[in-house]
């Protein structure tokens, strides 16, 4: 099962690399075609709009390959879950595979809903970076997981607490991608990129999906901490970092909904929020604490 999990993961990495290549080539081709049409006095397509000839077909294939990559990484997680008897979330290799799964899942969800493949130009590299990081860990450490240490011996909470976090991280990756695409455009938008107001909305929609999951992650973490560490809140650096992340996204939601912060200010807040998400995720490396078993001690 471990071997099958590894093979499925490698297949996912290869598929994702290919999909990203398709997206980049399709986008660059569409931009070049658009520039030529501009010279000829006509508008041009982006990879989000069908009808741009082979570039559009390439983008469509790219999305299909993203789906394939998602299926492979899902299979990898399932095989590993069967092999371990609990969610494969006990070390950074497993977290990183799961993070890529969350990002791909969130991207595909929003891609289906809004038909904006350009979002993939940011979301897919994030997922691929996580997979590359997992590959690096797999190359430097054994890929079979040790049995759980006593603090982690709670299969239900280990599986649910981290799975819920992965959904939050995945949606925040998409929110970050949309916000970044927003920020690289001038106020009136840039041809070939999605309209700024749609990107603003996607960011918001992604956060309102992710925020309840982050809330649940923290609450489940508190439930688990009470059972394992004897207190529901111990100001452990990782839990405090997750609180900081929760506060930043909470501020974003309040600012956007009540004070009408849309556009650039909201997008910058999402940059900060995703920075906090990565800080929480990679925090094991530099702030230790009770979550330190989840580091490189695989």
């Amino acid at each position: 099962m471990f071997k099958m999990s590894e093979y499925a993961f490698i297949a996912s990495v290869l598929a994702l690399s290919l999909a990203l290549l398709c997206y980049i080539v399709a986008f660059v081709s569409a931009r070049m075609g658009m520039a030529r049409m501009q010279l000829a006095g006509a508008g041009g397509p982006s990879i989000s709009t069908p009808g741009a000839g082979w570039a559009s077909a390439l983008a469509t294939y790219g999305t299909l390959i993203v789906w394939l990559s998602f299926i492979f990484v899902s299979a990898s997680l399932v095989f590993r879950t069967i092999a371990l008897g609990h969610g494969p979330f006990a070390n950074m290799y497993e977290f990183s595979v799961a993070f890529s799964w969350g990002t791909l899942g969130a991207y595909l969800y929003f891609e289906r809903k809004y038909h904006l493949r350009t979002l993939g130009l940011i979301a897919l590299p994030i997922a691929l970076a996580m997979q590359g990081y997992a590959l690096y860990l797999a190359a430097t450490l054994p890929t079979t997981s040790d049995p759980l240490v006593p603090a982690l011996q709670n299969n239900l909470l280990l599986s649910v607490h981290v799975a819920v976090a992965i959904v939050a991280y995945g949606t925040f990756s998409v929110a970050f991608g949309a916000a970044l695409l927003y920020l690289i455009q001038p106020a009136e938008g840039r041809r070939g990129l999605p309209k700024p107001e749609i990107l603003d909305e996607i960011s918001y929609r992604a956060v309102i999906v992710g925020y309840p999951f982050l809330t649940l992650t923290i609450v489940l973490g508190a439930v688990w901490a009470e059972q394992a560490w004897g207190t529901y809140w111990g100001w452990d650096p990782k839990e405090t970092a997750s609180l900081v992340t929760w506060l930043i996204y909470g501020a974003y939601l309040h600012a956007r909904v009540v004070r009408g912060w849309t556009g650039r200010r909201a997008a910058w807040l999402l940059m900060l929020g995703f920075g906090a998400t990565l800080f929480t995720y990679f925090g094991n490396y530099f702030f230790g604490g009770l979550h330190s078993y989840a580091g490189l001690d695989q």
Partner: peptide, 24 residues
């Protein structure tokens, strides 16, 4: 005022960040 609320949230986030980075 939401302005007050946001200022307080950011202040708490900043202090919490300090508490995460500096040994307690």
């Amino acid at each position: 005022s939401m302005r007050t609320g946001l200022a307080l949230i950011f202040a708490i986030a900043l202090c919490s960040f300090v508490g995460t980075m500096v040994a307690q």
